[in-house]
C-alpha cells in the first residue's frame, strides 16, 4: 500500500489541525478545510485519495457537500464523522458515504478505517 492524501473537513480548527499533525507522525499526508464550499474547491485543485467529512458544517451542510463531492469525484471515498456520539448502528449511512466514525475519534481507529476503505477501493 503506497502513500495517500487525506482531506479532513470539520469546522473545529483546533481539532483538525491536531489530527493533521498526528497523522503526519504516522506518515500520512493530510490537508484540512473548515467548511464544505472550500473543501469542494480544494478537491478541484488538488488530488486526494480519501475525504473525512464532518456532517455538521457551517454553510453548506455535510450531506450537500457529500453529494457534490461524489458527483465530481465519484472515485474518491468519503468517510463521515458524526457528533451524535452513540453507536453507529443507530444512524443510516447517507448514500455515497463509505462509512461512519463517531466523535471523539481515536486516531488509530481513524487510520484503520481509512486503510480499510482504501484497500476496498483497490488502492
Amino acid at each position: 500500500m503506497g502513500q495517500f492524501r487525506v482531506l479532513l473537513v470539520d469546522d473545529e480548527e483546533e481539532l483538525v489541525t491536531t489530527i493533521i499533525e498526528r497523522l503526519k507522525f504516522r506518515d500520512v499526508d493530510g490537508a484540512y478545510e473548515l467548511n464544505g464550499a472550500s473543501a469542494i474547491e480544494r478537491m478541484r485543485k488538488e488530488p486526494f485519495d480519501i475525504v473525512v467529512l464532518d456532517l455538521k458544517l457551517p454553510g453548506i451542510s455535510g450531506e450537500e457537500t457529500l453529494r457534490v463531492m461524489k458527483q465530481e469525484h465519484p472515485e474518491i471515498p468519503v468517510l463521515l464523522i458524526t457528533g451524535h456520539g452513540s453507536s453507529i448502528m443507530d444512524e443510516k449511512v447517507p448514500r455515497g458515504a463509505a462509512g461512519f466514525l463517531a466523535k471523539p475519534i481515536n486516531i488509530d481507529d481513524l487510520l484503520a478505517r481509512i486503510k480499510e476503505v482504501l484497500a476496498k477501493n483497490g488502492h
Binding site: 473545529e12 483546533e14 481539532l15 491536531t18 489530527i19 499533525e21 498526528r22 507522525f25 457528533g83 451524535h84 456520539g85 466523535k103 471523539p104 475519534i105 481515536n106 486516531i107
Partner: peptide, 19 residues
C-alpha cells in the same frame, strides 16, 4: 453536542502530546 466538540479537541491534543 456542546460537550462532545471540546472533548474531541482535548482527546486529540492529548493524543498529539502522546505522539
Amino acid at each position: 453536542h456542546e460537550i462532545n466538540n471540546p472533548l474531541a479537541i482535548i482527546n486529540e491534543k492529548a493524543g498529539l502530546l502522546s505522539d
